[in-house]
Amino acid sequence: MRLRGRPLPLGKIALFLILLASCVVIVVPLAMMVLGSFKNSLEVTRFDISLPKKWLAGNYLTVIKEGKLVRAFLNSFCITIVSLVITIFVSSIASFVIARKNTRLSNFLYYFFFIGTLAPMQIIPTINIFQILHLYGSYTSIILIYATLNISFSCFLYVGFIKTIPRALDEAAIMEGASIFKLFFKILFPLLKPVNITIGILVFMGIWNDINLPLYFLPDSSKWTMPLSVYRFFGRYYSDWNLVFADLALTAVPVVILYLFAQKYIVSGLTAGAMKQ
C-alpha cells in the first residue's frame, strides 16, 4: 500500500521480468494458432510463427458458414448455461445440508458424491438409461449428463467452502425469524460468490470444450456443440489447418470473455472473504 505511486523496487522489477518471460512461453504456441488461422492452407502447414504473407480474414467466414457455427454456438450456449444453472442449484443446496449436518450420513454423502470425480463414465449403460426414459438424443439428455458429471466436483468445492462460513451466521438469521429458504438464498448464497464464480468458470469451460459426449448422446448434428464443428476441416488424408485454427480460435473466444468478466468478480469477492471466521 505504501508503495503506491512510487517507482517499483528491484525485486518487483525482477518479478515483472520473470512474468513477462513466462508470457512469451505462453503466447508463442497460441500465436502459432492465431497467425495460422489467417494463412492459406499450404502456408499454414509450415506451423511456424511467421506472419501470414497475406492476411486471409475470409477463413473465419468460411468456417462460420461451413461449420454452421451460428447454430452450433447457440447449441453450446444453451446446453452449457442450462447445465451450469442446474449444477449450481442442485449442488449448492445439497452441499449446504451436507456441510451443516455433522452426521455419519452427511459424511457418507460427501464421499459418495466425491466418487463421481474419480470414476470414468460408462457410456453404454448411460445411453440405455436414457432410452428407458425416452430421452435419448434430446437436449435434455445431454444437459442432464453434463449436470450429473459436474455435481460431484461442485459439491466437493461447495462443502469445503460452506464449512468456512461460521454457523453463527445461520443461527443469528434464524433467531431474527428468517426461514431456512431465506437464510440460504438471501444470506448464504450471496456469500458463496467466490466459489460460485470458480465453479461457474470451471464447469462452463469443461462443458464448452467437451468434444466427446455429443458424439454419443446427440445423434443429430443440428444439436451439436461448437467444438465438434472442427472435424469438418481436417482428417487423415485432407486437412485445412488454417480453417481448423480459425474454428478453434472462435470456439475459445466465449470462454476467454467469460474469464475476463469473472475476473472482476473474483476481485470484488473480497468483501465476502472478509466474512470468514
Binding site: 445423434p219 448434428s221 472435424y231 469438418r232 481436417f234 482428417g235 487423415r236 488424408y237 485432407y238
Partner: peptide
C-alpha cells in the same frame, strides 16, 4: 424425416 449419414473425418474429402 431427418435422414442421418454418419462417417469419419477420413471420408470428409472433396
Amino acid at each position: 424425416v431427418t435422414l442421418t449419414i454418419e462417417g469419419s473425418q477420413e471420408f470428409k474429402v472433396p
